[in-house]
Design a protein around this nucleic acid. Structure first.
Lengths: 248, 248
DNA sequence: CGGCCAAATATGTATATACATAATGAGCGA
DNA sequence: TCGCTCATTATGTATATACATATTTGGCCG
């Protein structure tokens, strides 16, 4: 967003603040192409004269534009329109229950298996764990109505989240449970397509090899590995949507 | 970033500005959990006393935290730690040439077909076009070394981008060509897995039905539809990576 | 001609101040 | 008790000012 949402215009009819108006005026000229990449936008003192306001007010607008990546500011030289960066999309990943309910289908969750063990080499790889340390592995299925919607395979580091060892996860899915417990984590996602393997295919009630969308998410909090989860969505049943707006 | 990048700490060893230090001090306490969601953080005047600085400096830090979504500010009541929102991942989608070169493989591009036509119903659907209007359809392949890496099927609205009609696209891929011409666009992405259809399979030199990752991108500039493109990546040859950091 | 230093300039940060605005809560009257 | 008014309070916005800092320009001198 990222820095991306810096630029939203206030939605309703309320009078926007002056620095907001300056910001959106400039951003409009950039988006429309009137001020192309490389163009030098007016100096702070020129804008403050144009809007009859103080330099601080203009500075606030321009600083935000710079933070959002639309302009680059150089001392002594002025402020310049930047060329659009490699596209960055803001991808919302809500929890699966919300996804299913948004489809208008009833949601339920079932735990397939739950195992506590000393971390194997694969677990350490998945979690980005250094030393050997205990983990809990959970396999579960999310249903949309009567049909399996998504398969979840998760390991949680018991070093970072010891309470997980005594949590049954029979009623509550581990995702929401973790979110409630470990706020403000850092996550990395990996999205790919693959033919679904036999074990998962059986649980999802589809043929082995059916194309499926696999979303892997690795999560840390305060530099400690928390969890690694692999979601498998059958076939075209699901697509991720991401909207990217540099400006608006 | 979206509002996400507001929070980065300055990288090197340079002394950060005071409002930056205040911002990162507070953000650390929130990320570590010391100040849980709902917690009321000190009032501006308390912080300004604690840091022996003016209220404006504190205000700058808190306003940025609010914009980044970490805190919520309420007049008369104070500022409160927000609960983490539904996860939003920043997904970088560089152009394909960059992707291929990053794999250490030589890149080349080949145009398969190029057709100008009045927009069909499907074209209007893909572009989000209202009335009938001419389009150009381009089918091309991107190679990583000797092997086809990605199939591209694109339509461009000639109403929005009339120059495209006389562009051969023999040497330059339409993606970079458009980016150079239409900066600062808005885009929506859709990512899904599917079995590849026969026509595309032949071009990618794989079997029909092989699982593939399909990325569709629809683009507007100044509310005008620009282009719709569908990239098909064969099998596990490719995965999208997205890193999400609310804090840091 | 080349290299170095100093002046000019635009942005970066911070301050003290002022008034506007929204929300809370206390007090008062029916 | 309910509902109203009004003072209080924290944030929101804007100003004028000051000095710091990076960078360019131009001129001076060898």
């Amino acid at each position: 967003m990222t820095d991306l949402d810096v630029m939203e215009k206030p939605g309703g009819e309320e009078a926007p603040s002056l620095h907001q108006r300056i910001l959106s005026d400039i951003s409009e000229r950039i988006v429309s192409g009137e001020w192309a990449p490389g163009h030098r936008i007016p100096f702070e003192y020129e804008l403050s004269a144009a809007y009859s306001c103080s330099r601080m007010t203009v500075n606030k607008a321009l600083s935000q534009l710079a933070k959002a990546g639309m302009i680059e500011r150089r001392r002594r030289s002025g402020s310049f329109v930047r060329r659009p960066k490699s596209q960055a999309a803001v991808l919302e990943i809500h929890d699966i229950k919300t996804e299913v309910l948004a489809l208008g289908l009833p949601y339920h969750y079932r735990l397939e298996s739950r195992r506590v063990r000393r971390g194997t080499a694969e677990d350490r790889e998945r979690l980005g764990l250094a030393g050997p340390s205990a983990v809990i592995e959970l396999i579960s299925v999310h249903f949309a109505g009567p049909r399996p919607f998504c398969h979840e395979n998760r390991v949680i580091s018991l070093k970072t989240v010891p309470e997980a060892e005594h949590e049954p996860f029979a009623e509550m899915a581990p995702g929401p449970w973790l979110v409630a417990r470990i706020p403000w984590s850092v996550a990395e996602h990996r999205i790919r397509a693959t033919g679904v393997e036999a074990g998962i295919a059986a649980i999802l009630d589809i043929d082995a090899g059916t194309p499926s969308l696999v979303v892997e998410r690795q999560t840390w909090s305060a530099d400690q590995p928390v969890t690694h989860v692999r979601f498998t969505y059958a076939g075209d049943s699901h697509s991720l949507v991401a909207r990217f707006t540099p400006s608006h």
